[in-house]
Design a binder for these strands. Structure first.
Length: 299
DNA sequence: CAGACGTGGAT
DNA sequence: TATCCAAGTCT
């Protein structure tokens, strides 16, 4: 047997910690379906767990299979997405459900390549579904994992700019080997959980971390982040903001609304009209025969 | 690769 | 009040 490579993130230690501290999230229930996992992963993109929970429950109750969602209208889906944010995700999930229904026999694919071909599913989500829904050994790299690896392995205060290839290789090297792929999948979930609960961005709880002794960042004296400055994001007054306000008007009614009703949502006419155009282009809004506006009604 | 794309709670 | 930031994807 080859000697174990020394690692700052020992699998047995991490899995033991996960057994004791993992949150009891519904998409981790042994009874949940791959579809439930996929829905959770899309909703969780850039969105906190607490906000996803009630919407995920409603969705799985209303549309327990991909076929159920595929049969629903786009407008109902965008409405049910509510204020989770980035509503194009709802449209993409709908399109994914249709592709799954039409091309994959109604079963959520289990291999990364097939998942990657579905709308809204990228490098992270494809591997998250393969690992968490199907127990596969594959590197699952999200913002939490990148931060944990940056600190515990590389001794940096935080992760630098993402590089999919390098990040995947980094994490692949940490995954436990052997025939028990489910153990590697659980390791991936545990790594994310460590980043979410202990090795957090703002105030890491190193005192509660099972790796405080082996962590490269600890050993280096917890140096501050030294990489390139991260772009600071604004929201107020941006097109994102205005699009959200326009969509808010449409989510509030089931009847189409007039242009005048949309106009009250934002005072700057030029920006407002440009945003409405972009919503039409994205398929989040459609114009009815009489010139009014509504959430998309296509079935 | 940089920038667009929602929203709201925490600090 | 202002800034940070939360399980990314697409162009």
């Amino acid at each position: 047997m080859p000697p174990e490579v020394a690692t700052a993130l020992d699998a047995t230690t991490l899995l033991g910690w996960f057994d004791r501290h993992a949150r009891d999230l519904p998409w981790r229930d042994p009874e949940r379906t791959p579809w439930g996992v996929l829905v959770s992963e899309i909703m969780l993109q850039q969105t906190p767990v607490a906000r996803v929970l009630p919407v995920w429950r409603e969705w799985l109750d209303r549309w327990p299979t991909p076929q159920d969602l595929a049969a629903e209208s786009q407008g109902e889906i965008v409405r049910a997405w509510g204020k989770l944010g980035y509503p194009r995700r709802a449209l993409r999930l709908h399109a994914a459900a249709r592709a799954i229904t039409e091309h994959h026999g109604g079963e959520v694919p289990s291999d990364v390549e097939t998942l990657l071909a579905l709308p809204g599913i990228g490098a992270y989500t494809a591997r998250a579904v393969a690992a968490f829904a199907y127990g596969k050994r594959t590197p699952v790299v999200d913002t939490n994992v990148r931060r944990v690896v940056a600190r515990a392995v590389h001794g940096a205060g935080d992760a630098g700019p993402p590089s999919t290839r390098r990040d995947l290789d980094d994490v692949d090297a940490l995954l436990p080997e052997g025939p028990d792929e489910a153990r590697a999948a659980r390791f991936s979930a545990a790594l994310m959980e460590l980043g979410a609960l202990i090795c957090t961005a703002r105030s890491p709880r190193c005192a509660d971390c099972p790796f405080s002794a082996s962590c490269a960042w600890q050993k280096a004296g917890r140096p501050a982040y030294s990489g390139p400055a991260k772009p600071t994001q604004r929201y107020g007054g941006t097109d994102r903001h205005v699009r959200g306000l326009l969509l808010d008007v449409l989510r509030a009614t089931t009847e189409p609304v007039t242009k005048e009703q949309l106009d009250v949502a934002w005072p700057k006419a030029g920006q407002r009209d440009a945003c409405l155009d972009s919503l039409l282009t994205d398929g989040l809004v459609e114009q009815t025969g009489d010139g009014r506006f509504a959430l998309p009604g296509e079935h």
